[in-house]
Computed example of a mutant assay.
Amino acid sequence: MSTDYQQAREALGARLRELRKKHPGGKLTGPQLASLLGWPHSKIYKLEGGKQTATREDLRALSDAVGCPEAFAELAARLAGFETHIRSWRRQLAEGHGPVQQRWNAEVDHSSVIHAWEEAVIPGMLQTADYARYVLRHYAHLHGSSDDVEDAVRGRARRQEWLSERGHRFRVLIWEAALRSLICPPPVLAIQLDRLTAMIGMDTVDLGVVPFTASVKVAPANGFWVLDDRLVITEDWHAELWLDDADTVALYGKVWNTLRESAVYGADAHNVINAARRSLNTR
């Protein structure tokens, strides 16, 4: 979890503690407040200590319980401020996978040039429907989220329309591991790899592959997307990070450019993809 995010969560917790101690009827202890709310008293200390992130509903209940309902707007604004950057999967997927794709689509629609790096999966902008379906089902199972995978597949397919619009450029790097990872059955991956080879030479797509044998100057780590040098979106198991400060965007741009030095393009990329494709015939 980022330092900035944790500091913001701790600051929110400190504000909650301050409100508890300023209760109009006299300072409340943590157990007293927990009793009023019907919560385990450990939840109060986790929230105040920055160990747990409050929900909007938690903040509304707390502001009412401490006799300061007008504080809710301030507390909710603090929460929205840091959740803009760290978007937990638990919270996002409570709405389903479809809305997650819609938020992505909105950002992509406002972009002209996208730089992407994926180390373990074919990028969503280039996925076939069947491949996307397997990827999304695995994540739905992992997070125990709602079963709206078909809505998400349609949303992801809708995002791919961006590639056909004049003036757009998708500059994407893929590690060879993504070409060989059997996140789906071999026949599905074979069709996906065929699609990748068809994308080579498309005027809106610059597709580079970093082979296993390439010398690299930075470790091929988590995938990320840089949208118009204004926003970075990257993922971890617990959350999706939306990062928009200039220094961070510049850092990810530097990482992308460093990885690009190890990539192959054109016929050489075609050969790496075809080697992965041929290996499926032996499985």
Rank of each mutant, 00 (worst) to 15 (best):
K254N: 11
P186L: 09
A71D: 04
S145F: 02
E165D: 07
S88Q: 07
V216C: 08
R17D: 08
A221L: 15
G208L: 06
L47W: 02
Q32G: 09
G96W: 01
V108K: 06
D194F: 00
R156W: 07
I191E: 15
S215R: 11
T213K: 10
R195D: 04
C184L: 03
L231D: 06
E161H: 13
L196Q: 00
C184E: 08
H270A: 08
W89D: 11
R180Q: 14
L142H: 09
L59H: 06
P187Q: 04
Y45S: 15
L173D: 02
A34V: 12
R15Y: 06
E161P: 00
P40R: 13
E119R: 07
T84E: 15
W242M: 05
K51Q: 15
A94K: 12
G201F: 06
V218C: 05
V255A: 07
D245H: 15
S111Y: 00
E240C: 10
R60S: 11
T128Q: 05
A177H: 11
T282I: 09
R230E: 15
N274H: 14
M202D: 13
V272M: 01
A94F: 00
V135M: 08
C68D: 13
R260H: 08
G30C: 05
A73Y: 01
E261Y: 00
T197G: 06
V232T: 04
L196P: 04
T29P: 02
D148K: 03
A198G: 12
R133G: 03
L179M: 10
Y139W: 13
V188M: 03
R15P: 03
V209Q: 04
W175C: 02
D268R: 08
A221W: 07
